[in-house]
Simulated scan of single mutants.
Amino acid sequence: MTREVRVAVFRPDDERLAQAVELLDSLGATPVPDPMLAVEPTGNVPEDAPYVVLTSKTGAELLAEAGWLPGEATLVCIGPTTAAAARAAGWTVDAMPEEYSSVGLVERLRGDVAGERVAVARSDHGSDVLLDGLREAGATVEETVLYRLTRPEGAGQSTVMAAGGELEGVCFTSSLTVENFLDAAAERGVRDEAVAGLNDAVVGAIGDPTRETAAANGIDVDVVPDHAEFEELACRVVEAAAPSYHE
């Protein structure tokens, strides 16, 4: 007999969460949606620069809504999801790294940006790896915060489930989702129990920075996908969790 495989997801409460729930359901898992991020737009747009770097689908969509145009800039997107949003806005995507991460972006641009201005448009929780790496490559970096990421009021029911051993898997999609999960658990007085519950489950992290944040907080990460894409993360978490639950 196959037991239930309950997998918590922490994406913002918009189409991303809906798609995550649909995907997990299609994989035969029971989704546990618990949004740990809310998007608060700043209204800012990047100034003209020879290179513009977008690090999220949300950022591309906010710029499109604001009527921003890349003009003559070389438009660089962190991965396929961001690139698809940029193309949907009618923009040409000129470059994308092989590795969909801040490290990948630096590697992709390292030989091109010496002496150039690079506008990085992203959230208020972006990694310093990207800015520092581009500066080390000789670029003048101008960061524009397009939106702030906050923890929604009431988030954290999944922390209680984790503490009670009621989760078989979780999908962390950023360092901030890890931090907000732990903060929500602490508010409920179950931080240590929730961490212990996660360590009895299959923990997925979308990339190495997220894995490192989890590990620094005592969470053992079982799955890091080859590409920083949610679909691959979810598939691997469910695949790792499901075989353990057959009687």
Rank of each mutant, 00 (worst) to 15 (best):
E116V: 03
R122I: 05
V113N: 01
R110N: 07
A137K: 06
A114S: 15
V178L: 07
T92W: 10
T82H: 09
E142P: 07
M96L: 13
E153A: 14
V103A: 15
E153H: 12
A155L: 03
Q157R: 15
V190K: 01
A73M: 11
E142I: 08
L176E: 10
V118T: 08
A83T: 05
A95G: 07
D112C: 11
L130K: 09
T150W: 08
D132G: 10
L75F: 06
V120L: 10
T150M: 08
S174D: 06
V178S: 04
G126R: 05
A88G: 12
E143K: 12
Y100Q: 06
R117V: 15
V160D: 13
S127H: 08
L146P: 00
V160W: 07
L176F: 09
E107P: 07
V141R: 05
E142L: 11
D183E: 15
G164E: 13
D183I: 05
S123A: 14
G189C: 05
E168P: 10
T140K: 11
G71L: 07
T150Y: 09
A155C: 08
E168Q: 15
L167F: 03
F181S: 06
V103N: 13
P80K: 12
S127F: 10
E187C: 07
M161E: 13
D183P: 01
V129E: 15
L146I: 06
G138S: 08
E116A: 12
A84K: 13
E99K: 13
A184G: 12
S174W: 05
G133L: 04
T140L: 12
T144C: 12
G164C: 09
G154L: 09
D183C: 08
V118R: 03
G104Y: 02
E179F: 02
E116S: 12
A86R: 00
T144L: 12
Y147E: 04
Y147H: 10
M161K: 10
A119K: 06
L146G: 01
